[in-house]
Design a protein around this nucleic acid. Structure first.
Lengths: 126, 126
DNA sequence: ATAGTAACGATAAACAAGTATCAATTATCG
DNA sequence: CGATAATTGATACTTGTTTATCGTTACTAT
């Protein structure tokens, strides 16, 4: 049967508390503070299980490794910070797309680039 | 000095004739028909040189390896075929983006997904 | 509390993309 | 033409991510 381990709880919590897509490394960094000694193998294993269980979904961005975020969110897109490389959610949508003749549009992806709140200039210190 | 080799010509021609972004594999497939025996190492080498020379620019799409296309094109985005995985250019743009408070938007990327002309239904045969 | 076994952690292995090496080839100049 | 050195092709290597292995740990039900 499925067991409720500290490491699994920590990893689930990392996703639910993040509010943004996390990669395996980020998950490890977040969860290891709760469960010292947590291994990367467990992170990968658990991510795969959570995906299979439908709890999280993969988020892929250009040139980046796959991240994951909790599933069931409303339609949204992502903002990629050019400085800290962090990824954040943004509400977007409403764009004109003219696909070539004969093509059939099924879905779309919008990625915004810039500086996040923390990295943008005009902030007191760090 | 720089030499004008058959393989380099074939690779340049592959890009200029493609009209869409090509990955190293695709470049090899196209150029090897012109220069039998062409090796993948030469493709990578030449791509790097062409990028340095500004002749081509990298195109990155979610979950895909880097492709390249001839530089100097107008603002455009890409259409990724869900069936054949081919990538095509599309004219897009004009979308509303509301970035979170404090964020600074610098650039954007739009990727459309669907079926390309060849893969869309309602086509005679193939 | 204890047995049974799912899950863990460390690490080796598998993969894939891209790079470096080097002997053989060949474009280019005189 | 002939010498020279840039370029090539085959392949080994590097790098980074993800998976498999296996002895150990620690949930769970009894």
């Amino acid at each position: 049967m499925q067991r409720n381990t500290r490491q699994r709880q920590a990893i689930q919590k990392a996703f639910s508390h993040a509010g943004r897509p996390l990669g395996p490394r980020e998950v490890l960094e977040a969860a290891v503070t709760v469960v010292p000694g947590l291994g990367i193998a467990t992170v990968y294993r658990t991510i795969k299980e959570l995906v299979d269980a439908g709890e999280i979904v993969p988020v892929e961005l250009p040139g980046e490794n796959t991240r994951y975020e909790v599933s069931g969110k409303h339609h949204h897109h992502h903002f990629h910070c050019n400085k800290c490389s962090g990824v954040f959610e943004v509400e977007v949508c409403n764009f004109d797309a003219t696909v070539p003749k004969g093509f059939r549009l099924e879905d779309h992806e919008v990625i915004l680039y810039g500086l996040c709140d923390n990295c943008a200039p005009g902030r007191k210190t760090k």
